[in-house]
Design a binder for these strands. Structure first.
Lengths: 335, 335
DNA sequence: GTGAAAGCGCTAACAC
DNA sequence: GTGTTAGCGCTTTCAC
């Protein structure tokens, strides 16, 4: 709770000197004794510069904000972890919000965004709740990054190669000999989900297969959605022998539902998921997946959000390609 | 980017009026026309009060910080989600940090804590990295909350009834007829883990069984640790017919390892875990667990961290009791 | 080598 | 009903 001028007084110098010592101002010429004396007082009184005063003066808060839809989803957790790490590396702290409490116009988060309390903004996906935040961020000309989907007019969009992920997953099944391959999407409306679906469709067409419209179903990104999704899909298209699931969490739910209907993996049916998590490796049978650079996505988003001069309206696709990890949930179709 | 005085000038009033209108000062007497005029200008210019200036004046940042060890662990994710929600409800934004980047003394997070940039602090577990943060928080007399373990001298400790959780889990196995029941702990040094182990030991002793020292093993809180842990435990004590795992993530790893050594659940071996997650329900066999109020833990921690007048040095055990959820990974021992 | 002073944008006490 | 003013704690230019 000591202030700059208290330290200055105690050390017998002016506040300016204290400030410049604290900030390691290279151009400062002080005698070694003065410096030592000041440092000693700082140490004794455990002085730390007031964050608010500093950010009022500098017009920088040292904070970037990340707003996501669901904090508990393991897939997003990976993104969050990446963003946190990268933000820290850029000398920023990470403010974490949920989309749900952004909407009411009452949240502290919104006040901070509107009032310069954050220097950069990362938004996961679209949603009307996000739009006000986006607008405010735009007014402040703060670097704004959209994760995986959304309108890149007002912000930079970072994404992964979702089409390629869909293709890789589908090709793996095709190579095993499957032909009746379904797709469980995450959300019909979101770009990244559509991308994965396109990849699946492309790979199918390239193999000379025209998937029927009911070969694609809704899998969501939760265990429950995945379980429900696979049940509905197999009801609509019982001839399927394999499925690409757009999200690994949904895929786990799907395998549970499959297990419950007496369908054994991979003998009776094959499942491959997009996204890798530790979970996929420790499931039995372990899930074959297409690993996506989720952590990198978070890191890249934070990196962009930490740079004042970020160009807006750009779409950045991560260079790191999706990677096929074959485990035990995929095998040739029987018969 | 408009400022108070710009708004004031544009509306033909003084900054004080603008401030009091923005802050909904009830005692303010202004004509309806003046108010409307000011509001209109605020709307037009999209004015939002500067967060730094406000917090400099009020000595409150509107932010609480949460520092955890591992952002990607689903168990902690639940706590984080609870904390985020409760903080938002108390009008605070949540700053999320990882213990790892707190240590170097360079982090923005630390600067914020030391410089009054956060109003309250929640720390997960102990660790030397945390101690400096703790000390700084103490100097600022900011409400500080420890999650699940740590020294409650300088902070408030919130915990769950870990002993009871251990007891409940163990009693469930005892009631099924098991007698040779092992325990896989999270971390020998952490209070909550010791509590769960004590519960296990108590329940065993109460049933007239004296567990051998090698019936307790290290399970950690990751999939890999759980897998390794169960292997080592069964090597040391092959007569075990069931195990209580102190963390559900480790338990999933353990079931994978069990599966791999040809040991079927629950016919050959029973596993019950502490903590519930969706994952446990969607595993096959679904995991029997003792559900702990993780979300509530986060909420309570945030609630305390948001209150200036939080008493320190208190240990708060959540009233909500652990709850037994029997699923498919536990059954009577064979033979 | 070091100090004085202005000003970042806001709010609260007081004045009229 | 509305305006004036001081000051929160810091940094930075310029002066000596």
């Amino acid at each position: 709770m000591a202030t700059n001028s208290e330290i200055a007084k105690a050390a017998g110098v002016s506040p300016a000197v204290v400030s410049r010592i604290v900030n390691r101002d290279e151009t400062l010429r002080v005698s070694e004794e003065t410096r030592a004396r000041v440092l000693k007082v700082i140490e004794e009184r455990d002085y730390a510069p007031n964050a608010a005063a500093r950010s009022l003066k500098s017009a920088r808060a040292g904070v970037v904000a990340l707003v996501v839809h669901d904090l508990t989803n393991p897939v997003y957790a990976e993104i969050i972890a990446g963003a946190q790490k990268a933000a820290a590396r850029h000398g920023k702290a990470l403010l974490l919000g949920e989309a749900a409490d952004l909407g009411d116009g009452q949240s502290q988060m919104e006040d901070l965004i509107g009032g310069g309390g954050v220097d950069g903004l990362i938004l996961q996906g679209a949603g009307t709740e996000m739009d006000r935040a986006l607008a405010r961020a735009a007014r402040r000309a703060m670097p704004t990054v959209l994760l995986q989907s959304g309108d890149a007019k007002t912000a930079t969009l970072v994404r992964m190669d979702d089409e390629e992920a869909g293709r890789i997953a589908t090709r793996h099944l095709l190579e095993l000999g499957h032909r009746d391959i379904g797709f469980l999407d995450v959300s019909g409306g979101l770009a990244f989900s559509q991308g994965r679906a396109s990849g699946w469709r492309e790979a199918m067409t390239a193999a000379g297969i025209e998937p029927a419209t009911d070969w694609i179903g809704h899998g969501g990104n939760s265990f429950a959605d995945g379980a429900k999704g696979i049940a509905r899909l197999l009801e609509a298209a019982p001839q399927l022998t394999a499925v690409v699931v757009g999200n690994v969490v949904a895929a786990v739910g799907a395998t549970a539902a499959l297990h419950d209907r007496g369908c054994r993996l991979p003998e009776d049916f094959s499942v491959i998921a997009i996204h890798d998590t530790d979970l996929a490796a420790y499931l039995r049978p372990a899930l074959s997946v297409v690993r996506m650079p989720l952590r990198l996505l978070g890191e890249e988003a934070a990196r962009l959000a930490c740079h004042e001069d970020a160009t807006t309206g750009e779409v950045i696709t991560l260079a790191q390609p999706p990677e096929l990890i074959v485990r035990a949930s995929t095998a040739p179709p029987k018969g």
